[in-house]
Nucleic acid binder design. Sequence first.
DNA 1: GAATAATAGTTGATTTTGTAACTAACAAGC
DNA 2: GCTTGTTAGTTACAAAATCAACTATTATTC
Lengths: 150, 150
Amino acid sequence: MTQTDSTKIDDFNLQEFLPYLLNRAAEESSLEFQQIYKDRYGILRTEWRVLFHLGNYGEMTAKEIGERARLHKTKISRAVHRLETRRYLVRNRSETDRRVENLILTQMGQSVYRELSGIAEQYDAKLMAQFNADEVALLRKMLRRLAHMD
Amino acid sequence: MTQTDSTKIDDFNLQEFLPYLLNRAAEESSLEFQQIYKDRYGILRTEWRVLFHLGNYGEMTAKEIGERARLHKTKISRAVHRLETRRYLVRNRSETDRRVENLILTQMGQSVYRELSGIAEQYDAKLMAQFNADEVALLRKMLRRLAHMD
DNA sequence: GAATAATAGTTGATTTTGTAACTAACAAGC
DNA sequence: GCTTGTTAGTTACAAAATCAACTATTATTC
């Protein structure tokens, strides 16, 4: 099927459409890493995000994680429940506001986080290796801007 | 929660981790556009991808779409079914191989595609406007590489 | 300080996805 | 030309995501 096919409608080029490119790159670049935490620890994408937020930033509440990771509270709630069941974290109800619970990684959770963040670092290095340092720095900057993380 | 918090475990920085950045940027940059095709035409992400492949490349089989868009055949099958129900496309069984069906956008499908691709183009322009042309060209190139699209 | 509104988090119903097993058609080997 | 293997696409069942309604607690307002 070529560009000159009679059924081609307009001049829009999907291959250049930024949201599509971003999604394809995100899917592709996550695939391998995703497989590792799924196969090895049986955790899902959302659980990975929660685990990494706690490991990376330390003790937080569900709400704080939701804001930082841009995850909906129901997703967080279920992810926290599963991580708790696996004994990767414990909840600590706030003394000052009994609605709030502080989430804390257990020894086991920390150990899983450390192992996975090590693998993540290696994986990241491998991805970056195909570009030069300036390019990677610019890429990160642009992605942070697009993600409203700056 | 700061970096110096006692519960912080290591030196890994989530904000710099490429797969995470790519996912966040992809989610964020798709959100607004996604809302449009969802609210206006009631179609899902996978259906959007199938529709755009057919609109952009012309008549194709489910298998070809799957390869190009990196979508699993069950996803395609269901998306095609729904697009067919909405009368956005028709199936045309191949004469030479009765297993294969060529997928063709109807007038209605083409019209929806044209409207959405127009919106997509505007949206893309808006996203790019926050960077200069060189930066955008490099970003696209790097994303295509990461997505194995080159 | 009682009534109302707002917030943190959970639960349930529905939709969507993922995995595997399936059907139908074609291809290859003998 | 019949058995075996492969391919295109579908379907069934389980797992996960989404959305709205819910509980419990705190904040606000009169």
